[in-house]
Amino acid sequence: KSPLTGYVRFMNERREQLRAKRPEVPFPEITRMLGNEWSKLPPEEKQRYLDEADRDKERYMKELEQY
């Protein structure tokens, strides 16, 4: 499975939280809201997602080498 970027990891995590709080909001609007939230997120909060993405990318590269 391909590695996910930090942005995609953030979107996946927050999308479920936002949909639970506001189920009436259409999917494209949720994506737009989360995109704005990501762009305003402080670098230190973004870093968690970026670090997870880096670890996932390393895992993926190792799997490719073994293939």
Rank of each mutant, 00 (worst) to 15 (best):
K1G: 02
K1D: 01
K1S: 03
K1Q: 00
S2A: 09
S2D: 08
S2M: 14
S2V: 12
P3L: 13
P3R: 07
P3G: 05
P3F: 12
L4K: 13
L4F: 12
L4W: 10
L4Y: 10
T5S: 13
T5P: 11
G6V: 00
G6L: 00
Y7L: 10
Y7T: 07
V8Q: 15
R9Q: 07
R9V: 10
R9W: 01
F10C: 01
F10K: 04
F10A: 03
M11P: 00
M11N: 03
M11H: 01
M11F: 07
N12Q: 13
N12A: 12
E13L: 06
E13Y: 00
E13T: 06
R14M: 09
R14V: 03
R14D: 01
R14W: 02
R14H: 04
R14P: 00
R15N: 05
R15F: 11
R15C: 12
R15W: 08
E16M: 02
E16F: 00
Q17A: 08
L18V: 07
L18P: 00
L18R: 00
L18S: 02
R19V: 13
R19I: 14
A20L: 11
A20D: 09
A20W: 04
K21W: 01
R22E: 14
R22D: 13
R22K: 09
R22M: 11
P23K: 03
P23D: 01
P23E: 11
E24K: 03
E24S: 07
V25H: 04
V25D: 12
V25G: 02
V25C: 07
P26T: 10
P26R: 06
P26S: 13
F27S: 15
P28L: 11
P28K: 15
P28E: 15
P28I: 06
P28T: 15
E29W: 00
E29Q: 09
I30D: 05
I30V: 10
T31L: 04
T31V: 06
T31F: 00
T31N: 13
T31D: 14
R32L: 02
R32T: 08
R32D: 07
M33K: 12
L34S: 03
L41M: 05
L41Y: 00
L41G: 01
L41E: 03
L41S: 01
P42A: 09
P42M: 02
P42Y: 00
P42H: 02
P43Q: 10
P43V: 09
P43E: 08
P43N: 06
E44S: 07
E44V: 07
E44A: 10
E45M: 08
K46V: 03
K46A: 04
K46Y: 00
K46W: 00
Q47F: 10
Q47N: 06
R48E: 04
R48T: 07
R48D: 06
Y49K: 03
Y49S: 02
Y49M: 04
L50K: 13
L50H: 15
D51Y: 15
E52V: 05
A53R: 06
A53V: 04
D54V: 12
D54N: 10
D54W: 06
D54T: 12
R55N: 12
R55F: 08
R55Q: 12
D56R: 02
D56Q: 04
D56V: 01
D56F: 01
K57N: 10
K57V: 06
K57T: 06
K57S: 11
K57F: 03
E58N: 08
E58T: 11
E58R: 10
E58P: 10
R59Q: 13
R59S: 13
R59P: 12
R59H: 10
R59N: 11
R59D: 14
Y60M: 14
Y60E: 15
Y60V: 12
Y60P: 15
M61H: 12
M61W: 08
M61A: 13
K62Q: 10
K62C: 11
K62S: 09
E63Q: 05
L64Q: 14
L64T: 14
L64C: 13
L64H: 14
E65N: 12
E65A: 10
E65Q: 07
Q66N: 14
Q66K: 15
Q66T: 13
Q66I: 05
